[in-house]
């Protein structure tokens, strides 16, 4: 309980002429910065490398980015609500193993088993976060460890790589339609659906409201607990789906991929302009962020002399740049 005095609210409300323009530039940078950088990078890449701007390379980038993108959609919901989900990388791997394991019982089991398990764990995490008020970061950290353990347990301590034994399920990861694989189309569909959910429904607005100010959201009648639980459920389900699709693509439940994937996902979301403090951001930015990471990776491959780890350096630097820019924009807004 703090005693609030006028000083806390005493911001000067007058705006200098030209403020609106600065504000608009800030808004543009915040929401479409990743898209602009993506466009510039693509143009530079196309000029510099002949083999970059080919349909083949574009398809490669899109296909390899699609799994990250699916998880990033869920993560965007979580981060906008003011939380974070560190468990998605583990969820992704676990789902792959479960899907490959389940594929021997048919397509339906191969899909439902990972979705059920990952969804259930997401739900539990959501319940713990919403009900006990424990920090999302620590709850999902425990989720990360727990699911890694579960994955190892299912796969005989990682020694057993289940192979996918169902053609219909394999097709889900490998078949192409209009030159793009099925996961890409699924990603597009989910991004569209997620965008509508976030921007055009009461649920989506509730997510923004909770992330913006939980206290205000309660007073405005938002069912905070329910929305929070749903957000973690969505994140768990999408990470599970991405893992299952990846297993279908690789025809096996690989146990070594996906560690640390949560960091790439969070990086993509933050680069896309979604603030980790919650309450603002969106899926367009996230998609641009994911693609930007993919394009950078592709460019580094083109350069050849650089190892692929260079991509991490670039995305780390980029992430730092983005958060610093966001802070500066934030300060400029406060001072005005």
């Amino acid at each position: 309980m703090t005693t609030t005095t006028d000083a806390d609210t005493g911001t000067d409300t007058r705006r200098a002429p030209g403020m609106l323009r600065r504000e608009r530039i800030g808004h543009l940078l915040q929401h479409h910065g990743a898209l602009m950088v993506l466009a510039v990078t693509v143009v530079v890449g196309a000029v510099a490398f002949d083999s970059f701007a080919t349909p083949q390379n574009a398809a490669n980038i899109v296909v390899s980015s699609s799994f990250l993108a699916i998880i990033a959609i869920g993560m965007t919901f979580v981060i906008i609500s003011g939380g974070i989900d560190l468990s998605v990388g583990s969820s992704f791997v676990l789902a792959g193993v479960l899907a490959a394991y389940g594929s021997r019982y048919g397509l339906l089991v191969a899909l439902l088993l990972p979705l059920t398990v990952c969804g259930a764990i997401g739900l539990v995490q959501g319940l713990i976060v919403a009900r006990t008020g424990m920090a999302p970061f620590i709850v999902t950290l425990a989720g990360l460890l727990g699911m890694r353990g579960l994955m190892l347990a299912v796969s005989d301590e990682g020694a057993n790589t289940y192979l996918v034994r169902n053609d219909a399920f394999s097709a889900l990861g490998q078949a192409s339609f209009l030159g793009l694989t099925v996961p890409v189309w699924i990603t597009l569909g989910l991004a569209l659906l997620g965008g509508v959910l976030l921007q055009r429904t009461g649920f989506g607005q509730n997510v923004y409201a909770i992330g913006g100010s939980e206290e205000a959201a309660v007073l405005m009648g938002v069912p905070v607990t329910r929305v929070k639980v749903l957000v973690y459920l969505i994140s768990g389900l999408l990470a599970g789906l991405a893992g299952a699709l990846n297993a279908a693509r690789l025809s096996s439940g690989v146990t070594i991929l996906g560690a640390g994937m949560e960091l790439d996902v969070i990086a993509a979301v933050v680069i896309g302009g979604t603030l980790l403090t919650g309450g603002s951001g969106g899926l367009t930015g996230t998609m641009a962020g994911v693609l930007l990471l993919g394009v950078i990776q592709s460019l580094i491959n083109q350069i050849g002399v650089l190892t692929s780890s260079f991509q991490q350096v670039v995305s780390g630097a980029f992430l730092a740049l983005v958060v610093v820019t966001q802070r500066i924009l934030h300060r400029a807004q406060r001072l005005s």
């Binding site: 607005q205 409201a209 206290e215 205000a216 405005m220 938002v222 309450g279």
Partner: peptide, 25 residues
């Protein structure tokens, strides 16, 4: 006690958004 990052309109009408025929805002 409103949400500073949300638009004026969304703050004003949160929970009472007008829906189109498709059920979305």
């Amino acid at each position: 006690n409103l949400v500073p990052q949300m638009s004026l309109a969304h703050n004003l009408l949160l929970g009472r958004e007008p829906r189109s025929r498709l059920g979305v805002t």
